[in-house]
């Protein structure tokens, strides 16, 4: 059984069936990609996993526990961190302050909201944040305003902030959308490095096939709200159903 089990999840927006009957199992410590054409329901699925949306039917289990009905911060505390399509960082704060917030939020492996303990542990937190910045190769930008950085750096910071919480599952929503080639390659290298060193589970939604095929161990193809196929990257590449969904070629004609 995988760390994330999605069973029969459906979501309807008015007359639009965004998700039909999605079943998905993400194995622990793997990189699982979810691909599909625009409007296939990828982001809706992700929103259902993190508590932003509540599915109409089905269940979502993380490590054997249901995530449904919990608010986003509670789901995050269970060990699911999310990286957004447009980097969600604290734009008005410095890079260092950005990194300190997840370090304050999760201290010694637990989530805490104790103001006095925060003040007392301020020095340790700063040291941990600094360490994390060095690891993300951003230590030289520590006093910069986060909003002044390039998109690639913002993404890097966001991933770093997620990692500072030591999540068990990292969800990435089109992490390379709108990025230059060099930034994209940097992001791929970063994610590979994370996977090698930290052995966390990564679920990634992506448009860019170059990214998908260089990272994923398993791929699920979504089309019109239902999973089309799930297989290894090699098998997905030449799959007729995938070609049909993406290119509109009918299988009969091919």
């Amino acid at each position: 059984m995988g760390i994330l089990e999605v069973k029969g999840v459906g979501k309807r927006f008015g007359g639009l069936q965004a998700l039909g009957d999605v079943n998905l199992s993400v194995a622990e410590r793997s990189v699982h990609a979810i691909i599909g054409p625009n409007g296939a329901g990828k982001s809706t699925l992700l929103n259902c996993l993190v508590g932003k949306l509540i599915p109409d039917t089905g269940s979502v289990l993380f490590d054997g526990q249901s995530v449904l009905g919990r608010s986003p911060h509670e789901i995050n505390q269970m060990g699911i961190s999310r990286v957004f399509q447009t980097p969600e960082i604290f734009g008005d704060l410095t890079v260092m302050e950005n990194m300190m917030i997840p370090c304050f939020a999760k201290r010694d492996g637990a989530f805490e909201m104790n103001a006095i303990a925060s003040v007392l542990s301020q020095r340790d937190i700063a040291a941990k944040a600094e360490e994390m910045l060095v690891e993300m190769n951003m230590a030289d930008k520590r006093d910069m305003h986060a909003s002044a950085m390039s998109r690639g750096d913002k993404r890097r910071l966001e991933i770093g902030m997620c990692l500072a919480q030591e999540p068990r599952l990292l969800l990435l929503d089109e992490p390379t959308a709108g990025m230059a080639r060099a930034d994209t390659n940097n992001t791929i290298d970063l994610l590979k490095q994370i996977q090698d060193e930290r052995h966390i589970t990564i679920a990634i939604i992506e448009h860019d096939m170059h990214v998908v095929f260089s990272l994923a161990e398993r791929i699920t193809v979504l089309a019109q709200g239902t999973p089309l196929v799930e297989d290894t990257p090699d098998n997905i590449k030449g799959h007729p159903k995938v070609r049909e969904a993406y290119l509109g070629e009918s299988t009969a004609a091919a």
Binding site: H73, N76, S81, R82, F90, G91, D92, L93, P102, A105
Partner: peptide, 16 residues
Amino acid sequence: RAIKTNQTRLNYTGLN
């Protein structure tokens, strides 16, 4: 200050 800048990120940092 984090709340002023981005409540979404704070939510997804496990904080209410």
